[in-house]
Design a protein around this nucleic acid. Structure first.
Lengths: 242, 242
DNA sequence: ATTTACGATATGTATGTACATAATTGTCAA
DNA sequence: TTGACAATTATGTACATACATATCGTAAAT
Protein backbone atom coordinates (compact mmCIF):
# COMPACT_ATOMS: atom_id res chain seq x y z
CA UNK A 1 0.00 0.00 0.00
CA UNK A 2 2.03 2.93 -1.21
CA UNK A 3 0.45 5.94 0.33
CA UNK A 4 3.37 8.16 -0.35
CA UNK A 5 2.22 9.35 -3.75
CA UNK A 6 2.09 13.09 -3.80
CA UNK A 7 0.73 15.62 -6.20
CA UNK A 8 4.02 16.13 -7.94
CA UNK A 9 3.05 19.65 -8.91
CA UNK A 10 3.89 22.42 -6.50
CA UNK A 11 0.23 22.64 -5.58
CA UNK A 12 -0.70 21.92 -1.97
CA UNK A 13 -2.15 18.47 -1.34
CA UNK A 14 -5.93 18.25 -1.26
CA UNK A 15 -6.94 19.11 2.27
CA UNK A 16 -9.78 16.63 2.23
CA UNK A 17 -8.28 13.60 0.65
CA UNK A 18 -8.80 10.28 2.37
CA UNK A 19 -5.03 10.12 2.74
CA UNK A 20 -4.93 13.36 4.66
CA UNK A 21 -7.61 12.07 6.97
CA UNK A 22 -5.82 8.76 7.44
CA UNK A 23 -2.64 10.57 8.38
CA UNK A 24 -4.43 12.91 10.73
CA UNK A 25 -6.07 10.01 12.51
CA UNK A 26 -2.73 8.24 12.83
CA UNK A 27 -1.28 11.44 14.24
CA UNK A 28 -4.01 11.66 16.85
CA UNK A 29 -3.28 8.10 17.88
CA UNK A 30 0.45 8.70 18.05
CA UNK A 31 -0.04 11.85 20.11
CA UNK A 32 -2.33 9.98 22.49
CA UNK A 33 -5.23 12.28 21.67
CA UNK A 34 -7.22 9.13 21.02
CA UNK A 35 -6.16 6.27 23.29
CA UNK A 36 -6.27 2.59 22.50
CA UNK A 37 -9.73 1.20 23.10
CA UNK A 38 -11.32 4.60 22.79
CA UNK A 39 -14.36 5.22 20.63
CA UNK A 40 -13.74 7.96 18.11
CA UNK A 41 -16.37 10.24 16.53
CA UNK A 42 -18.65 8.77 13.88
CA UNK A 43 -18.16 9.17 10.17
CA UNK A 44 -20.72 11.97 9.93
CA UNK A 45 -19.00 13.97 12.67
CA UNK A 46 -15.55 13.51 11.19
CA UNK A 47 -16.84 14.41 7.76
CA UNK A 48 -18.23 17.61 9.20
CA UNK A 49 -14.99 18.32 11.03
CA UNK A 50 -12.77 17.73 8.03
CA UNK A 51 -15.19 19.40 5.67
CA UNK A 52 -15.55 16.44 3.38
CA UNK A 53 -18.07 13.79 2.36
CA UNK A 54 -18.80 10.84 4.61
CA UNK A 55 -17.56 8.52 1.85
CA UNK A 56 -14.12 10.07 2.15
CA UNK A 57 -13.95 9.51 5.88
CA UNK A 58 -15.32 6.04 5.26
CA UNK A 59 -12.48 5.13 2.97
CA UNK A 60 -9.86 6.47 5.37
CA UNK A 61 -11.33 4.51 8.27
CA UNK A 62 -11.86 1.40 6.19
CA UNK A 63 -8.22 1.34 5.13
CA UNK A 64 -7.09 1.90 8.71
CA UNK A 65 -9.31 -1.00 9.75
CA UNK A 66 -7.75 -3.14 7.00
CA UNK A 67 -4.33 -2.79 8.55
CA UNK A 68 -5.64 -3.26 12.07
CA UNK A 69 -5.20 0.25 13.42
CA UNK A 70 -8.88 0.71 14.23
CA UNK A 71 -11.77 -1.67 14.74
CA UNK A 72 -15.22 -0.94 13.38
CA UNK A 73 -18.64 -2.32 14.21
CA UNK A 74 -22.00 -1.32 12.88
CA UNK A 75 -24.30 0.49 15.18
CA UNK A 76 -21.36 0.78 17.60
CA UNK A 77 -18.75 2.88 15.91
CA UNK A 78 -15.03 2.96 15.38
CA UNK A 79 -12.50 2.47 18.13
CA UNK A 80 -8.72 2.55 18.28
CA UNK A 81 -7.41 -1.00 18.43
CA UNK A 82 -6.18 -2.06 21.87
CA UNK A 83 -3.15 -3.86 20.63
CA UNK A 84 -1.99 -2.21 17.48
CA UNK A 85 -1.66 -5.58 15.77
CA UNK A 86 1.75 -5.53 14.25
CA UNK A 87 2.51 -7.59 11.30
CA UNK A 88 5.68 -8.19 9.42
CA UNK A 89 5.72 -8.56 5.71
CA UNK A 90 7.72 -11.48 4.53
CA UNK A 91 8.86 -11.35 0.98
CA UNK A 92 8.29 -14.47 -1.02
CA UNK A 93 11.06 -14.34 -3.57
CA UNK A 94 11.85 -16.65 -6.41
CA UNK A 95 14.70 -18.88 -5.25
CA UNK A 96 16.93 -17.76 -8.07
CA UNK A 97 16.42 -14.11 -7.23
CA UNK A 98 17.05 -14.80 -3.58
CA UNK A 99 20.35 -16.53 -4.27
CA UNK A 100 21.49 -13.97 -6.80
CA UNK A 101 20.61 -11.16 -4.41
CA UNK A 102 23.32 -12.52 -2.12
CA UNK A 103 25.80 -12.29 -4.91
CA UNK A 104 26.00 -16.03 -5.37
CA UNK A 105 25.86 -18.11 -8.52
CA UNK A 106 22.48 -19.82 -8.92
CA UNK A 107 22.00 -23.32 -10.27
CA UNK A 108 19.32 -25.94 -9.84
CA UNK A 109 18.77 -29.51 -10.80
CA UNK A 110 15.61 -31.53 -11.10
CA UNK A 111 15.93 -34.73 -9.09
CA UNK A 112 12.67 -36.31 -10.13
CA UNK A 113 9.50 -35.56 -12.01
CA UNK A 114 6.43 -37.78 -11.91
CA UNK A 115 2.84 -37.46 -12.92
CA UNK A 116 0.83 -39.45 -10.43
CA UNK A 117 -2.51 -39.64 -8.70
CA UNK A 118 -2.57 -37.56 -5.56
CA UNK A 119 -1.44 -39.62 -2.55
CA UNK A 120 -4.07 -39.91 0.13
CA UNK A 121 -1.90 -38.11 2.67
CA UNK A 122 -1.81 -34.98 0.55
CA UNK A 123 -5.38 -35.10 -0.62
CA UNK A 124 -6.85 -33.63 2.52
CA UNK A 125 -4.19 -30.96 2.87
CA UNK A 126 -4.68 -29.72 -0.66
CA UNK A 127 -8.43 -30.26 -0.72
CA UNK A 128 -8.26 -32.31 -3.92
CA UNK A 129 -10.69 -34.96 -5.16
CA UNK A 130 -9.53 -38.58 -4.86
CA UNK A 131 -7.37 -39.72 -7.75
CA UNK A 132 -6.67 -36.20 -9.02
CA UNK A 133 -3.59 -36.07 -11.26
CA UNK A 134 -0.70 -34.20 -9.75
CA UNK A 135 2.84 -33.47 -10.81
CA UNK A 136 5.46 -34.34 -8.24
CA UNK A 137 8.78 -32.58 -8.69
CA UNK A 138 11.85 -32.67 -6.50
CA UNK A 139 14.55 -30.06 -7.03
CA UNK A 140 17.78 -29.03 -5.47
CA UNK A 141 18.81 -25.40 -5.63
CA UNK A 142 22.41 -24.31 -5.26
CA UNK A 143 24.16 -21.10 -4.31
CA UNK A 144 27.75 -21.15 -5.56
CA UNK A 145 27.45 -24.90 -5.92
CA UNK A 146 26.54 -25.40 -2.29
CA UNK A 147 23.07 -26.80 -1.55
CA UNK A 148 20.74 -23.94 -0.74
CA UNK A 149 17.27 -25.44 -0.79
CA UNK A 150 15.72 -28.84 -1.24
CA UNK A 151 12.29 -28.46 -2.81
CA UNK A 152 9.63 -31.13 -2.79
CA UNK A 153 6.63 -29.93 -4.73
CA UNK A 154 3.19 -31.20 -5.70
CA UNK A 155 1.26 -29.41 -8.42
CA UNK A 156 -2.41 -29.77 -9.19
CA UNK A 157 -2.44 -30.56 -12.91
CA UNK A 158 -6.11 -29.68 -13.23
CA UNK A 159 -5.28 -26.14 -12.19
CA UNK A 160 -2.10 -25.79 -14.21
CA UNK A 161 -2.40 -28.08 -17.25
CA UNK A 162 0.27 -26.21 -19.21
CA UNK A 163 2.96 -27.29 -16.82
CA UNK A 164 2.72 -30.88 -18.03
CA UNK A 165 4.69 -29.97 -21.13
CA UNK A 166 7.44 -28.25 -19.19
CA UNK A 167 10.86 -29.84 -19.07
CA UNK A 168 12.26 -27.51 -16.39
CA UNK A 169 15.61 -27.46 -18.11
CA UNK A 170 16.13 -23.76 -17.88
CA UNK A 171 13.27 -22.52 -15.75
CA UNK A 172 12.64 -24.09 -12.35
CA UNK A 173 9.13 -25.17 -11.36
CA UNK A 174 9.21 -22.46 -8.75
CA UNK A 175 9.85 -19.76 -11.29
CA UNK A 176 7.53 -21.23 -13.89
CA UNK A 177 4.66 -21.26 -11.41
CA UNK A 178 5.32 -17.75 -10.20
CA UNK A 179 5.18 -16.56 -13.78
CA UNK A 180 2.26 -18.62 -15.01
CA UNK A 181 0.02 -19.59 -12.16
CA UNK A 182 -1.43 -16.71 -10.20
CA UNK A 183 -2.92 -17.44 -6.81
CA UNK A 184 -5.11 -15.52 -4.45
CA UNK A 185 -4.67 -17.46 -1.21
CA UNK A 186 -1.47 -18.66 0.34
CA UNK A 187 -0.65 -20.46 3.51
CA UNK A 188 2.88 -20.57 4.88
CA UNK A 189 4.07 -22.76 7.68
CA UNK A 190 7.55 -22.00 8.98
CA UNK A 191 9.34 -24.30 11.34
CA UNK A 192 12.62 -25.77 12.47
CA UNK A 193 13.13 -29.50 12.20
CA UNK A 194 15.76 -32.17 12.23
CA UNK A 195 16.87 -33.16 8.76
CA UNK A 196 15.47 -36.45 7.51
CA UNK A 197 17.89 -38.91 5.95
CA UNK A 198 16.96 -37.72 2.47
CA UNK A 199 17.13 -34.04 3.34
CA UNK A 200 20.46 -34.51 5.07
CA UNK A 201 21.93 -36.19 2.03
CA UNK A 202 20.59 -33.58 -0.34
CA UNK A 203 21.75 -30.63 1.70
CA UNK A 204 25.05 -32.12 2.72
CA UNK A 205 24.37 -32.02 6.43
CA UNK A 206 24.00 -34.76 9.02
CA UNK A 207 20.78 -36.48 9.76
CA UNK A 208 18.94 -34.69 12.56
CA UNK A 209 20.81 -31.45 12.01
CA UNK A 210 18.57 -28.41 12.30
CA UNK A 211 16.97 -27.31 9.04
CA UNK A 212 14.65 -24.45 8.29
CA UNK A 213 11.42 -25.62 6.70
CA UNK A 214 8.89 -23.63 4.75
CA UNK A 215 5.73 -25.40 3.75
CA UNK A 216 3.55 -23.42 1.42
CA UNK A 217 0.19 -24.13 -0.13
CA UNK A 218 -1.47 -21.84 -2.64
CA UNK A 219 -4.93 -21.56 -4.13
CA UNK A 220 -6.68 -19.52 -6.76
CA UNK A 221 -10.11 -19.03 -5.26
CA UNK A 222 -10.96 -22.55 -4.07
CA UNK A 223 -8.74 -24.31 -6.53
CA UNK A 224 -5.53 -25.73 -5.10
CA UNK A 225 -2.45 -24.85 -7.13
CA UNK A 226 0.58 -26.26 -5.41
CA UNK A 227 1.94 -27.55 -2.14
CA UNK A 228 5.65 -27.29 -1.58
CA UNK A 229 8.08 -28.13 1.18
CA UNK A 230 11.29 -26.14 1.02
CA UNK A 231 14.11 -27.22 3.26
CA UNK A 232 17.15 -25.04 3.94
CA UNK A 233 20.31 -25.76 5.92
CA UNK A 234 20.45 -23.93 9.23
CA UNK A 235 22.66 -21.21 7.83
CA UNK A 236 19.57 -19.88 6.08
CA UNK A 237 17.97 -16.73 7.37
CA UNK A 238 14.64 -15.28 6.51
CA UNK A 239 14.70 -11.57 7.08
CA UNK A 240 11.94 -9.02 7.01
CA UNK A 241 11.99 -5.31 7.66
CA UNK A 242 8.93 -3.17 8.24
CA UNK B 1 -9.51 -8.98 4.62
CA UNK B 2 -12.59 -11.00 5.40
CA UNK B 3 -14.52 -11.08 2.22
CA UNK B 4 -16.62 -14.00 3.25
CA UNK B 5 -19.41 -12.00 4.83
CA UNK B 6 -22.67 -12.91 3.25
CA UNK B 7 -26.16 -11.55 3.45
CA UNK B 8 -27.23 -13.94 6.14
CA UNK B 9 -30.80 -13.75 5.00
CA UNK B 10 -31.96 -16.26 2.46
CA UNK B 11 -31.92 -13.54 -0.17
CA UNK B 12 -29.53 -13.95 -3.09
CA UNK B 13 -26.35 -11.91 -2.86
CA UNK B 14 -26.41 -8.61 -4.71
CA UNK B 15 -25.50 -9.43 -8.27
CA UNK B 16 -23.48 -6.25 -8.66
CA UNK B 17 -21.58 -6.04 -5.44
CA UNK B 18 -17.87 -5.31 -5.67
CA UNK B 19 -17.32 -8.70 -4.07
CA UNK B 20 -19.16 -10.47 -6.86
CA UNK B 21 -17.06 -8.67 -9.41
CA UNK B 22 -13.85 -9.45 -7.56
CA UNK B 23 -14.71 -13.12 -7.52
CA UNK B 24 -15.72 -13.11 -11.16
CA UNK B 25 -12.41 -11.55 -12.13
CA UNK B 26 -10.52 -14.11 -10.10
CA UNK B 27 -12.56 -16.80 -11.81
CA UNK B 28 -11.59 -15.51 -15.23
CA UNK B 29 -7.96 -15.56 -14.23
CA UNK B 30 -8.29 -19.07 -12.88
CA UNK B 31 -10.03 -20.26 -16.03
CA UNK B 32 -7.34 -18.69 -18.19
CA UNK B 33 -9.82 -16.37 -19.85
CA UNK B 34 -7.42 -13.61 -18.86
CA UNK B 35 -3.77 -14.61 -18.84
CA UNK B 36 -0.99 -13.14 -16.72
CA UNK B 37 0.35 -10.00 -18.33
CA UNK B 38 -2.81 -9.48 -20.32
CA UNK B 39 -4.63 -6.17 -20.39
CA UNK B 40 -8.23 -6.52 -19.30
CA UNK B 41 -11.15 -4.27 -20.32
CA UNK B 42 -11.38 -0.83 -18.78
CA UNK B 43 -13.55 0.08 -15.82
CA UNK B 44 -16.24 1.60 -18.03
CA UNK B 45 -16.49 -1.53 -20.13
CA UNK B 46 -16.64 -3.83 -17.15
CA UNK B 47 -19.22 -1.64 -15.48
CA UNK B 48 -21.35 -1.87 -18.59
CA UNK B 49 -20.85 -5.62 -18.76
CA UNK B 50 -21.74 -6.21 -15.12
CA UNK B 51 -24.50 -3.64 -15.18
CA UNK B 52 -23.13 -1.59 -12.32
CA UNK B 53 -21.48 1.73 -11.65
CA UNK B 54 -17.86 2.33 -12.52
CA UNK B 55 -17.16 3.00 -8.82
CA UNK B 56 -18.13 -0.55 -8.04
CA UNK B 57 -15.76 -2.02 -10.60
CA UNK B 58 -13.16 0.44 -9.36
CA UNK B 59 -13.34 -0.88 -5.82
CA UNK B 60 -13.13 -4.48 -6.96
CA UNK B 61 -10.08 -3.78 -9.10
CA UNK B 62 -8.47 -1.60 -6.46
CA UNK B 63 -8.71 -4.34 -3.86
CA UNK B 64 -7.32 -6.88 -6.31
CA UNK B 65 -4.46 -4.50 -6.98
CA UNK B 66 -3.89 -4.17 -3.22
CA UNK B 67 -3.17 -7.86 -2.92
CA UNK B 68 -1.11 -7.91 -6.08
CA UNK B 69 -3.41 -9.85 -8.37
CA UNK B 70 -3.63 -7.10 -10.94
CA UNK B 71 -1.52 -4.07 -11.74
CA UNK B 72 -3.05 -0.76 -12.71
CA UNK B 73 -1.67 2.27 -14.47
CA UNK B 74 -3.43 5.40 -15.52
CA UNK B 75 -3.94 5.93 -19.17
CA UNK B 76 -2.78 2.35 -19.68
CA UNK B 77 -5.30 0.15 -17.98
CA UNK B 78 -5.42 -2.89 -15.76
CA UNK B 79 -3.44 -6.01 -16.45
CA UNK B 80 -3.17 -9.37 -14.75
CA UNK B 81 0.02 -9.36 -12.70
CA UNK B 82 2.94 -11.30 -14.12
CA UNK B 83 4.36 -12.10 -10.73
CA UNK B 84 1.44 -12.03 -8.40
CA UNK B 85 1.62 -11.77 -4.65
CA UNK B 86 5.18 -11.55 -3.62
CA UNK B 87 4.72 -11.08 0.08
CA UNK B 88 3.05 -12.80 2.97
CA UNK B 89 1.98 -11.10 6.13
CA UNK B 90 3.14 -12.60 9.36
CA UNK B 91 1.31 -11.63 12.47
CA UNK B 92 3.41 -10.63 15.42
CA UNK B 93 1.31 -11.68 18.37
CA UNK B 94 1.90 -11.22 22.07
CA UNK B 95 3.20 -14.52 23.44
CA UNK B 96 0.37 -14.83 25.89
CA UNK B 97 -2.23 -14.33 23.18
CA UNK B 98 -0.48 -16.81 20.97
CA UNK B 99 -0.48 -19.49 23.64
CA UNK B 100 -4.04 -18.82 24.71
CA UNK B 101 -5.19 -18.91 21.10
CA UNK B 102 -4.15 -22.55 21.06
CA UNK B 103 -6.33 -23.21 24.05
CA UNK B 104 -3.40 -23.65 26.39
CA UNK B 105 -2.79 -22.21 29.83
CA UNK B 106 -0.25 -19.38 29.73
CA UNK B 107 2.38 -18.76 32.39
CA UNK B 108 5.75 -17.07 32.38
CA UNK B 109 8.62 -16.61 34.74
CA UNK B 110 11.38 -14.05 34.81
CA UNK B 111 14.75 -15.76 35.01
CA UNK B 112 16.89 -12.68 35.38
CA UNK B 113 16.70 -8.93 35.24
CA UNK B 114 19.73 -6.66 35.14
CA UNK B 115 20.37 -3.06 34.37
CA UNK B 116 23.76 -2.88 32.71
CA UNK B 117 25.79 -0.96 30.18
CA UNK B 118 25.26 -2.25 26.67
CA UNK B 119 27.76 -5.01 25.84
CA UNK B 120 29.99 -4.19 22.92
CA UNK B 121 28.66 -7.10 20.86
CA UNK B 122 25.14 -5.68 20.93
CA UNK B 123 26.10 -2.08 20.55
CA UNK B 124 26.57 -2.22 16.80
CA UNK B 125 23.47 -4.31 16.19
CA UNK B 126 21.25 -1.91 18.11
CA UNK B 127 23.02 1.23 16.98
CA UNK B 128 23.49 2.44 20.54
CA UNK B 129 26.16 4.80 21.88
CA UNK B 130 28.92 3.16 23.96
CA UNK B 131 28.01 2.69 27.59
CA UNK B 132 24.28 3.20 27.06
CA UNK B 133 22.20 1.75 29.89
CA UNK B 134 20.12 -1.24 28.90
CA UNK B 135 17.80 -3.60 30.70
CA UNK B 136 18.57 -7.25 30.17
CA UNK B 137 15.68 -9.61 30.88
CA UNK B 138 15.48 -13.34 30.41
CA UNK B 139 12.09 -15.03 30.52
CA UNK B 140 10.62 -18.43 30.02
CA UNK B 141 7.10 -18.71 28.66
CA UNK B 142 4.99 -21.80 29.19
CA UNK B 143 1.98 -23.33 27.47
CA UNK B 144 0.22 -25.74 29.81
CA UNK B 145 3.39 -25.80 31.91
CA UNK B 146 5.53 -26.96 29.03
CA UNK B 147 8.27 -24.60 27.85
CA UNK B 148 7.03 -22.64 24.89
CA UNK B 149 9.56 -19.88 24.38
CA UNK B 150 12.84 -18.80 25.87
CA UNK B 151 13.18 -15.05 25.59
CA UNK B 152 16.41 -13.15 25.91
CA UNK B 153 15.74 -9.44 25.67
CA UNK B 154 17.69 -6.20 25.74
CA UNK B 155 15.83 -2.94 26.19
CA UNK B 156 17.19 0.54 25.56
CA UNK B 157 16.44 2.36 28.80
CA UNK B 158 16.92 5.75 27.20
CA UNK B 159 14.01 5.02 24.91
CA UNK B 160 11.74 3.39 27.47
CA UNK B 161 12.60 4.87 30.88
CA UNK B 162 9.26 3.86 32.44
CA UNK B 163 10.16 0.21 32.18
CA UNK B 164 12.84 0.56 34.86
CA UNK B 165 10.16 0.57 37.54
CA UNK B 166 8.45 -2.54 36.22
CA UNK B 167 8.63 -5.73 38.24
CA UNK B 168 7.17 -7.96 35.51
CA UNK B 169 5.27 -9.94 38.09
CA UNK B 170 1.99 -10.01 36.25
CA UNK B 171 2.79 -8.49 32.88
CA UNK B 172 5.64 -9.89 30.82
CA UNK B 173 8.21 -7.55 29.26
CA UNK B 174 6.88 -8.59 25.89
CA UNK B 175 3.37 -7.50 26.72
CA UNK B 176 4.44 -4.38 28.56
CA UNK B 177 6.42 -3.21 25.57
CA UNK B 178 3.66 -3.94 23.10
CA UNK B 179 1.30 -1.85 25.16
CA UNK B 180 3.60 0.98 26.10
CA UNK B 181 6.35 1.30 23.57
CA UNK B 182 5.19 1.96 20.06
CA UNK B 183 7.70 1.36 17.31
CA UNK B 184 7.80 2.27 13.69
CA UNK B 185 10.54 0.02 12.35
CA UNK B 186 11.00 -3.65 12.95
CA UNK B 187 13.48 -6.20 11.73
CA UNK B 188 12.84 -9.91 12.04
CA UNK B 189 15.33 -12.65 11.46
CA UNK B 190 13.90 -16.16 11.39
CA UNK B 191 16.12 -19.20 11.42
CA UNK B 192 16.59 -22.75 12.55
CA UNK B 193 19.48 -23.54 14.85
CA UNK B 194 20.80 -26.17 17.19
CA UNK B 195 19.91 -25.48 20.82
CA UNK B 196 22.74 -24.08 22.91
CA UNK B 197 23.36 -25.66 26.28
CA UNK B 198 21.36 -22.95 28.02
CA UNK B 199 18.51 -23.03 25.54
CA UNK B 200 18.35 -26.79 25.70
CA UNK B 201 18.09 -26.73 29.47
CA UNK B 202 15.45 -24.02 29.46
CA UNK B 203 13.30 -25.65 26.82
CA UNK B 204 13.73 -29.19 28.05
CA UNK B 205 15.34 -30.48 24.88
CA UNK B 206 18.78 -31.86 24.14
CA UNK B 207 21.70 -29.73 23.21
CA UNK B 208 21.91 -29.37 19.44
CA UNK B 209 18.27 -30.24 18.92
CA UNK B 210 16.60 -28.08 16.29
CA UNK B 211 15.02 -24.92 17.64
CA UNK B 212 13.14 -22.15 15.87
CA UNK B 213 14.71 -18.77 16.47
CA UNK B 214 13.20 -15.35 15.98
CA UNK B 215 15.48 -12.41 16.46
CA UNK B 216 13.69 -9.10 16.42
CA UNK B 217 14.89 -5.55 16.72
CA UNK B 218 12.58 -2.57 16.88
CA UNK B 219 13.05 1.16 16.58
CA UNK B 220 10.92 4.27 16.99
CA UNK B 221 12.16 6.35 14.13
CA UNK B 222 15.94 6.14 14.66
CA UNK B 223 15.80 5.28 18.32
CA UNK B 224 16.43 1.64 19.19
CA UNK B 225 13.80 0.16 21.48
CA UNK B 226 14.55 -3.47 22.02
CA UNK B 227 16.41 -6.47 20.68
CA UNK B 228 15.06 -9.86 21.52
CA UNK B 229 15.96 -13.45 20.75
CA UNK B 230 13.03 -15.83 21.06
CA UNK B 231 13.77 -19.52 20.95
CA UNK B 232 11.07 -22.15 20.46
CA UNK B 233 11.28 -25.93 20.51
CA UNK B 234 10.94 -27.49 17.10
CA UNK B 235 7.28 -28.28 17.62
CA UNK B 236 6.62 -24.58 17.11
CA UNK B 237 5.03 -23.46 13.89
CA UNK B 238 4.68 -19.98 12.54
CA UNK B 239 1.73 -19.81 10.24
CA UNK B 240 0.55 -17.09 7.94
CA UNK B 241 -2.40 -16.96 5.63
CA UNK B 242 -2.95 -14.43 2.90
C1' DA C 1 16.29 13.49 -36.20
C1' DT C 2 15.20 15.09 -31.75
C1' DT C 3 12.68 17.53 -28.62
C1' DT C 4 8.53 19.72 -27.00
C1' DA C 5 3.73 20.41 -26.58
C1' DC C 6 -0.65 18.86 -26.44
C1' DG C 7 -4.72 16.10 -26.69
C1' DA C 8 -6.78 11.71 -25.62
C1' DT C 9 -7.73 8.33 -22.32
C1' DA C 10 -7.86 5.11 -18.28
C1' DT C 11 -7.49 5.23 -13.69
C1' DG C 12 -7.86 8.00 -9.15
C1' DT C 13 -10.66 10.43 -6.08
C1' DA C 14 -14.42 13.45 -4.09
C1' DT C 15 -19.28 14.13 -3.42
C1' DG C 16 -24.39 13.56 -2.41
C1' DT C 17 -27.86 10.48 -2.17
C1' DA C 18 -30.15 6.30 -1.23
C1' DC C 19 -30.77 2.14 0.79
C1' DA C 20 -28.91 -2.24 3.29
C1' DT C 21 -27.32 -4.42 7.40
C1' DA C 22 -25.87 -5.30 12.03
C1' DA C 23 -26.10 -4.44 16.73
C1' DT C 24 -27.79 -1.93 20.65
C1' DT C 25 -31.45 -0.01 23.24
C1' DG C 26 -35.94 0.61 24.74
C1' DT C 27 -40.69 -1.09 25.12
C1' DC C 28 -44.15 -4.13 26.10
C1' DA C 29 -46.10 -8.35 27.37
C1' DA C 30 -45.89 -13.03 29.39
C1' DT D 1 -37.71 -10.86 35.79
C1' DT D 2 -37.30 -12.24 31.41
C1' DG D 3 -37.96 -12.71 26.71
C1' DA D 4 -39.57 -11.04 22.25
C1' DC D 5 -39.74 -7.46 19.18
C1' DA D 6 -39.45 -2.98 17.23
C1' DA D 7 -37.06 1.37 16.89
C1' DT D 8 -32.72 3.45 16.45
C1' DT D 9 -28.27 4.30 14.71
C1' DA D 10 -23.48 3.80 12.88
C1' DT D 11 -21.32 1.54 9.49
C1' DG D 12 -21.51 -0.83 4.73
C1' DT D 13 -22.33 -0.43 0.01
C1' DA D 14 -24.22 1.10 -4.61
C1' DC D 15 -24.63 4.68 -7.85
C1' DA D 16 -24.17 8.87 -10.91
C1' DT D 17 -21.46 12.57 -11.68
C1' DA D 18 -17.63 15.58 -11.81
C1' DC D 19 -13.11 16.62 -11.93
C1' DA D 20 -7.95 15.37 -11.11
C1' DT D 21 -3.86 13.16 -12.67
C1' DA D 22 -0.67 10.30 -15.06
C1' DT D 23 0.92 8.70 -19.30
C1' DC D 24 0.85 7.45 -24.04
C1' DG D 25 0.78 8.73 -28.87
C1' DT D 26 1.11 12.17 -32.11
C1' DA D 27 1.87 16.41 -34.20
C1' DA D 28 4.45 20.59 -34.28
C1' DA D 29 8.72 23.05 -33.53
C1' DT D 30 13.60 23.08 -33.27
Amino acid sequence: MSDVTQTGTGAAAQPNSFRTIKTEILRRIRDRIWQPGELIPGEEDLAREFGCARMTVNRALRELADIGIVERKRRVGTRIAEHPLREARLEIPVVRTEVEARGAQYRFSVLSRDEVEVPETLRARLELPPGAPVLHVRCLHFADNRPWQFEDRWINLAAVPDIAGQSFETVSPNEWLVRNAPFSEMENDLSAAGATAEEAEMLGVSRGDPVFVIERATWLLDQPITLVRMVHPSSYRMISRV
